[in-house]
Design a protein around this nucleic acid. Structure first.
Lengths: 165, 165
DNA sequence: GGATTTTATTTCATAAATGTAATATAGCCA
DNA sequence: TGGCTATATTACATTTATGAAATAAAATCC
């Protein structure tokens, strides 16, 4: 059946030993952890054929989703949820592959501008069909209505973290 | 407002450029990623006071949630969603702290048995109140009904990955 | 029962992520 | 303008995670 069953059993036992342990929230947290792992692993597998890993793909897609395909490193860090130090390393890798380019920022010379190169755009065009298939397949079990409801609830969940700061 | 808004805007632009890109599934995947990050960071912060990090805490709780507080390394890896190599390192750390103990397995001498020590149990008792508070707070924005519905939908989402193998 | 295959665990090399400090420029204010 | 503060980015050290090979014991097969 579900790969999550053992987790629930352990949680039940935990509650017997420590009744204050909040079952619902703990289940949600563990579900997110499990899902994240599966999503990350699946994506890495699918992207291997294109010479990318998941974080690199995410950076490319953040640029792809921006008006002029250009972002400052700090914006990219924020967009992709990566630490600044990580952005340096990952963008170095993408530069070496020729998928993005670095340029000095016109207005503020502390900043750089990262842009997708034609090769980067080309690669995105090549890999998107695989990624679309993957995303469709991963959510095949849910109706459109369920997906929308899940989206709503996940956003509410995330709001709770924003509130905490 | 929501920290997720920019993500949605980028997704909208992505769809304009590549109409086949499935918005719903992509949003779900990105929400899971954001949530996981926040959960992981919050937990690490809360656990620092107890000298633990999130993966170490997870291992302790997997043992705590098991009938006799004992698991083989391979079971622990499965339970915590960690790779075997990682389990070796993490359990070494926990052994050095005296929170768990290793023993040879009676039946199958390829295996080890990992058990919570009294000190490990004691530490869990000390940190659980903080963790319970944290979990309650993170989910405060959702009603019990919403939490239950979210749990149901996340399980359905996870089922999709189990089906893929 | 001996050879072969499978399973469990660890070791080691490597990759990925993070924190902290260093560097450089911008913006501000007197 | 000069000095102070804030921001952007990178470099370096450290931690954390992963993959692949090595080791050893069990299970299987003939």
């Amino acid at each position: 059946m579900s790969s999550f069953l053992p987790t629930e059993q352990r949680l039940a036992l935990t509650r017997r030993r420590h009744p204050a342990f909040p079952r619902g929230p703990a289940v949600l947290v563990r579900l997110v952890k499990h899902l994240h792992k599966r999503i990350h692993d699946d994506a890495n597998t699918a992207l291997k054929a294109f010479g990318l890993n998941h974080p690199q793909y995410n950076l490319l897609m953040m640029l792809y989703g921006t008006a002029d395909h250009a972002l400052h490193p700090s914006q990219l860090a924020e967009a992709a949820g990566e630490k600044a130090a990580n952005i340096t390393r990952l963008t170095n890798e993408l530069c070496e592959k020729g998928l993005i380019a670095r340029a000095a920022s016109e207005g503020d010379r502390r900043k750089l501008v990262l842009t997708l190169t034609p090769a980067g755009l080309e690669l995105i065009g090549q890999l998107l069909p695989s990624i679309c298939d993957l995303l469709e397949e991963q959510t095949r079990g849910m109706s459109a209505r369920e997906q929308a409801e899940l989206e709503r609830l996940l956003k509410k969940f995330l709001d709770g973290f924003d509130r905490r700061g």
